[in-house]
Nucleic acid binder design. Structure first.
Lengths: 153, 153
DNA sequence: TAGGACCTTGGAGTGCACTCCAGGCAAGCC
DNA sequence: GGCTTGCCTGGAGTGCACTCCAAGGTCCTA
């Protein structure tokens, strides 16, 4: 799990209120794959797979060809983790990553994609709250049935 | 929130307050698999598969061996659909179905299972709301960047 | 009583998101 | 130099939740 702190910022401020704390400051941020694996909770396999399918925005390499991830990569992975939580298919995340690679002229397309995702997330939350009502109801039923078993049919 | 019927019955009555409207009243409820497929949105394949893995509480058969689903089956499938929305693995739903088959002495176990599910759902909603905040923030960023592109770095 | 739509079964196939493997390179330590 | 640990690659394997297939039986309408 990436997120340990579910800090809810009720109103999004102009700048990030809780930036993800990086293990090392910018300048000394050259993480090996296993460090990133530990930080993100993703396996090294998955990180390599993400790169292969185009979900990472170009990862640096050491002089011997080993991956060296930066703080920007960690930020990206944290964001990808959020998108993953929404249930977005990996293919769509790759699409977003492509837009990022293509440069600033894709801002509008990116915003549209995120807006669509936001709609999906809102719908999903509504669904879950609906389900929550059903669960509450059933749990109440079992509570009542256990208090007064003779009334149960 | 998009709650259509968040009707919370503080005390669980013997019957649901807003019962899912069945296509036919009790007594004439002998649906073929394709009728159930149309009503639930699940394919006939999936319905048969549900039965095979033990997720259905014994489906009736016609004298020639064809499935005849009842209103109770529709209710069960609607509930299973809710559980599915929560992301609960099918194996866990099968576990719940087993408890139901075992009779009333499993009320406590069933309630525990549902309470655990409720915890999961609440956590999931919190995660999604967290993600929503991130999405809002990014969308705002793109909106700002598009209004004032010269400020974008 | 013929035709077509619908139903049955066991088992095989699909798509997604990983997950692992084999074989090999490289760096650090005694 | 030998050993261990970590990393590399392409490709194969896994688990889940369906999804489909082939071969055949059933139901309904004309």
């Amino acid at each position: 799990m990436i997120e340990s702190t579910p800090v809810r910022t009720g109103r999004p401020g102009p700048c990030v209120s809780t930036p993800p704390p990086h293990p090392r400051p910018d300048g000394q941020d050259r993480y090996t794959i296993s460090e990133v694996s530990a930080w993100t909770g993703l396996t090294a396999h998955t990180l390599r797979w993400y790169e292969r399918i185009g979900l990472m925005p170009h990862v640096d390499r050491s002089h011997t060809g080993q991956r060296r991830f930066t703080n920007r990569d960690l930020d990206w992975l944290a964001f990808v983790g959020k998108l993953r939580l929404t249930g977005m298919p990996v293919a769509d995340m790759v699409r977003y990553a492509e837009l990022v690679r293509e440069g600033e002229h894709t801002f509008e397309a990116r915003q549209e994609l995120l807006k669509a995702t936001r709609r999906d997330v809102r719908a999903r939350i509504a669904e879950l709250q609906d389900t929550l009502a059903v669960l509450d109801h059933k749990i109440d039923f079992y509570a009542g049935a256990r208090r007064a078993p003779e009334r149960t049919t």
